[in-house]
Amino acid sequence: MQRLASRAVLAALIALLPLLGGCVSGYFAALNRGAPPAPPSSLSFLPRQDVALDVFPVQGEGEAPVVVFFYGGRWQDGERADYAFVGEQLAAAGIVTVVADYRLYPEVRFPTFVEDAAAAVAWARENAARYGGRPDALFVAGHSAGAHIAALIGSDPRYLAAHGLRPKDLAGVIGVAGPYDFLPLRADDLIEIFSADPATQAASQPVNHIDGDEPPFLLLHGESDLLVWAENSRRLKARFDAIGAPAELRLYPGVGHVRILGSLRYPALAPTRTDLIEFVHRHAAR
């Protein structure tokens, strides 16, 4: 069974890392150290709901792959400004990157935040060329709750169908420390977010949607993750293997939930960034 720890536990783990300076704000300050104070382009893609995204372009004429990245936060915390380091790092590697907000609990519940994320993906496909990207080389990625959202967009066709797209229109999905198979729900806030209805809960699990119509998946997980157990990624990979669909799994010994995110900025922590970039460029070339 997978476990999601509370924000208090997350804060305690964060405080143990030398990068953090003892608090969440210090953690993100360390990750964003040296980044420009504002991204090149910030705009609202759901203006009625006041939901926005930041675009980190690359130079060129529509030749670069595109990654839409969703942050974690237990579906109830987070903001795109804290993840500028992801956009900067991937753009420097030749990948147009979109870091998108989505509405959070308690403002919304499942599946609204996935629907918001799908709208961001549709926006990225339509506007990729304006920022040097290729619409046919579009990837979805995320960390923790964001990986869950990315996996649902890449496996449950109803979300992209609302925008005239299919999961196969994606070039790939990258999940970093994601919860993909986390029933039964025991925490009160998760039951509030995902409903007490068994059918709704089942629909929220990416593992239940793998049926062969997905793009290639890359699953990255730390074996020492105590917030979202690596068994999530193992079980999702096993489901892909059972139907003969493409998925790659990379497990990092000694790496936990916070460290794997930090490794996107500081590669000495884990090879997460290298593996992600290699996967994107390899599949974009196909």
Score class of each variant (00 low, 15 high):
186 R>P: 00
169 D>E: 11
173 V>C: 05
55 V>P: 07
160 L>G: 03
97 T>P: 05
191 I>R: 15
192 E>V: 01
260 I>S: 13
51 V>P: 04
282 R>Y: 07
108 V>S: 01
14 I>A: 03
59 Q>K: 10
275 D>I: 05
22 G>Y: 00
274 T>R: 15
89 Q>V: 04
177 A>N: 06
21 G>V: 05
105 Y>D: 09
194 F>L: 12
103 R>C: 04
171 A>E: 02
186 R>M: 02
164 G>W: 05
180 Y>E: 05
190 L>M: 11
201 Q>V: 13
79 E>W: 11
219 L>K: 11
218 L>E: 11
221 H>A: 14
99 V>C: 12
157 P>E: 14
273 R>L: 15
63 E>V: 07
187 A>R: 14
264 L>S: 01
167 P>M: 09
42 S>E: 15
111 P>I: 11
140 V>S: 04
257 H>W: 08
49 Q>I: 00
91 A>H: 03
17 L>C: 01
118 A>T: 14
55 V>Q: 03
131 Y>T: 04
150 A>G: 15
48 R>D: 15
195 S>D: 12
93 A>H: 13
141 A>I: 05
223 E>Q: 13
78 G>W: 12
18 P>H: 11
284 A>S: 03
161 A>L: 07
120 A>P: 10
76 Q>E: 15
194 F>D: 01
101 D>W: 09
95 I>M: 01
67 V>Q: 15
180 Y>M: 07
183 L>C: 02
217 F>S: 10
21 G>N: 12
238 A>I: 06
45 F>D: 09
258 V>T: 14
157 P>G: 09
187 A>V: 09
260 I>E: 15
